[in-house]
């Protein structure tokens, strides 16, 4: 199946606005998760694992001038969907923009955390914390 293009933040916001049923939200999450480019096997290393996630999440940052490029992957579909949302907010942005972005506000707006178990929510926050650390370090360098 050809991967659909990764959705942008506006797409995600407007699509989520249409959903009432939990099935639609999750079907969308699973769908956008499938649009993520998989991380090469060589990058799925212990060192790239994000601690605190219930499923395995690997994160590899690259820097392109002042922009932070993020490659993130997981072995679980729903987590890949959450990653797609995180990437729509953070990927290919300068560190300042990453640090200024109100991701909790976005999660609230999408009513994401409420639909996740506490452990899953913590995993999502662990991913966000890791990205913000990367942005902070890159901004300082």
């Amino acid at each position: 199946m050809p991967a659909a293009a990764a959705p942008c933040l506006d797409d995600i916001r407007s699509t989520f606005g249409f959903f009432d049923a939990w099935q639609d939200k999750y079907a969308f999450l699973i769908d956008i998760g499938k649009s993520l480019a998989p991380l090469p096997e060589a990058d799925r290393t212990e060192g790239n694992l994000v601690r605190g996630c219930q499923s395995q999440v690997w994160l590899v940052p690259h820097f392109d001038g002042d922009k932070v490029h993020l490659a993130i992957d997981s072995d679980a579909h729903i987590v890949r969907g959450l990653i797609a949302i995180v990437l729509a907010a953070y990927d290919d942005r300068p560190p300042r923009q990453i640090l200024d972005f109100d991701i909790e506000g976005l999660f609230d707006e999408l009513d994401l955390i409420g639909h996740l178990s506490p452990t899953r929510g913590n995993g999502l926050r662990a991913m966000v914390a890791r990205i913000r650390n990367i942005a902070r370090e890159h901004a300082a360098s």
Binding site: W22, Y26, Q54, S55, H77, I78, V79, H115
Partner: peptide, 21 residues
């Protein structure tokens, strides 16, 4: 082809409490 956590999350949405992992 499905991760246990994905299955568990979708069961939870349907009011079925199981353990995964």
């Amino acid at each position: 082809g499905s991760h246990p956590h994905d299955v568990g999350t979708l069961l939870d949405q349907q009011g079925v409490a199981v353990r995964t992992g």
